[in-house]
Amino acid sequence: MDAILLQILNGLDKGSAYALIALGLTLIFGTLGVVNFAHGALFMIGAFCAVTLQRIFTISRTTVDESRTDFLGNPMEVDTPYLEIWFGPEFGAALIDWSVPLAILFAIPVMLLIGWIMERGLIKHFYKRPHADQILVTFGLAIVLQEIIKYFYGANPIPTPAPSAFAGSFDFGAALGFDPMTIIYPYWRLIYFAFAGLVIAGVFCFLQFTTFGMVVRAGMADRETVGLLGINIDKRFTIMFGIAAAVAGLAGVMYTPINSPNYHMGMDFLVLSFVVVVVGGMGSLPGAVLAGFLLGILESFASMNEIKSIIPGIDQIIIYLIAIVILLTRPRGLMGRKGVMED
């Protein structure tokens, strides 16, 4: 029982990342009809927003400490962050410690801007081109973006820890009456799950309860009719592209303490997120979220030693197996509707 609970918890945080990326992907596909293979790169750029803010916070004044020597035997140069000089060691250190949550505020405008530039500068020229062209150009863009990040930040993972207040794990085992230390779960992963829930709820509320959202939903269902009513749907869809980029970016920011960011992390999630979108139903927002969590949990269960001892290698293929089964039984995915996104 405790092993099952653990894998459900594991699946929830993995599913959170899948759901957030797939949500943005399906938003772009549902509004603009574009298959955006650069979406994983947006997730990665979000993560590097956190790295960048951490680096900005740790810009330092260098002084020479004559009492110590560096590896060459020269007097050691000691760096003191300006934040600690300006605001005092305690408050300055606290700001640096909280750089990941604070990076959310930094990442939102950056990602909106990147999304807008991407859409206006490149992707809008491919609206009327075949999906194969869109895939090629966005995949190329993803490679360019990750090479740019590698040029500036290197290929090594960069540690970006969570605030020390959230270090450590919660003992679910003790709380639920099992043996202590049998079901432990890192605080930050719980925060990630809660954060994903908030973002997903925010996007749904925005689309469901605002006039802007209503127009976007109408445009997704029938773009031509909305256009005939005199509404500039293209402009709204551009804004939705920016929002989708921001969602991917926020997912990336909050993911950095879970796995140290590197330039390749977007590609690691991209293919799986596409499978999630297809399984959920192309263009279906609830489908993307549902499929994200479902596949995340199933992937976790497939990694259990008990399962792998029966079917070796199942953890590598489970998501694709489920995708095949669902597409065979429900060709439009879990929540895809007839006539939506079917040319």
């Binding site: 092993a3 993995k14 796995n259 992390m265 690691d268 259990m304 953890d315």
Partner: peptide
């Protein structure tokens, strides 16, 4: 990239 499901059974 994420080893959580391999790590949780260890304890």
């Amino acid at each position: 990239t994420d080893f959580s499901s391999y790590i949780t059974p260890i304890l």
